[in-house]
Structure formats: structure tokens, C-alpha cells
Design a binder for these strands. Sequence first.
DNA 1: TTCCAGGCAATAC
DNA 2: GTATTGCATGGA
Length: 211
Amino acid sequence: MKTKIKLLYDTLLNEYGYQGWWPLSSAGYHAKDYTFPKNKNEQFEIIIGSLLTQNTSWTSVEKSLANLKKLKALDPVGMLKINLDILKSAIKPSGYFNQKSERLKLLAKWFLENKNTPTREDLLKLKGVGPETADSILLYAYKIPSFVVDTYTKRILLKIGLIDDSFNYDMIKNLFEDNLKHDYKVFQEFHALLVEHAKQIKKGKRLLLNI
DNA sequence: TTCCAGGCAATAC
DNA sequence: GTATTGCATGGA
């Protein structure tokens, strides 16, 4: 028998289709193509995108990424070299630019010094990287099946009654990971689908799914 | 104008 | 150990 989690996945996929995350400045969304990132620079772009998108809309992040690209700071070496004040103005659209600029610099340094695939614990030691950002980096930059839980995820599960308010980040993460095959492609789609669904609900275009 | 957006760290209690 | 607060911009 299918768990409610799997049913939710099938329903969302049927409703919205493949999401093609993580969007990249060069390739954009890339539905059904799970070969990204194709190189170290794309991997780094996902990492800094995951930091920039904290508590900020993706459209704001896209502006910041475009600014960084013009300044040749969308790769780790360029990020390390760029003047701090110029960096701050480049990422201004994403908010929290004082904190984020410092953390981007540290991420670039870390990325260049550590060539091996990081563990979740490695990532959580980095300044500005909490549970969601760590899982995003693992899942989208390194293709490791680590489920990403964001505020949307919790809100949707609450709404359909799969959890109550006492569930914390790790409990929700485990709920998904215990009920799904550990396939990074499924984890990537599922998280992206939850975000899309939440956006549709906010726009008032979708009602509660029948699950 | 107020609220919130693909959170996290520091501080308060 | 849990709860609260600051961080900052831009669009609805």
C-alpha cells in the first residue's frame, strides 16, 4: 500500500509536472535532466544560491546572481577576489547583505580548500548554513538524497494533517526519508513540487489537495 | 502600510 | 534547553 507521502508526491507531480530544479544562470530550469551541476562552477553557483535564497524570494536571488555574473564573481575564485563593498551592493536585492556577503566569502574559501564531498555535519559547521541550506546543498549541488524541509513543507503537511505543530525539522525530514526510496531525483522533484504548490496556494490558484 | 519571501545566529529567559 | 529577536530588500 502506498503511504500518504508517496500519494502526495504522485499527486503533486501529476498536477505540476517535473520542476527542473536547481535553476542555473546558464541553463535555467532543466526538467527531466538530472545531470546538473555539470562542473565545479555550477556546483558553486547552487551553493551560493542556497545561501542567498534564505528568507528571500528566488526572483530577488536571480538579480543578485546576475550581478555577480557580470562582476565575474559567480565562481569561487572570483567570489574570493571581489571587493567586499562591491559584493554587498551586488547581492543587495536578496537582503541581509552584510551577513550574506561575509558568509559567501567564507563559502568560497571553504569550497576551494575542500575538494571532497562534504557531509551534512561538515556543512552545518559553516557560518550561515543551517539544516535547510545544508540539505539543499547536499541534494542539489552534490546529488545526495537528503530531504530538504522548508517552511512551505511544514505548512503543507500541517494543512493535510500528516503532522502536528510539535514536529521539528528532523522529524519532518525523517517522515519523508522513511517513506521514499532514497533517490536524489525523487527528493529534488518532491521538494521543488512542494514549493511550487505553496506558491500556487498563495496565489489562490489551488485549493487543498484531496489527500 | 503591513506582511512575507525556497533561514540562521545571537541573545534572552 | 527553548523562545525571542535582528538581519534588509522588494513585491503584493
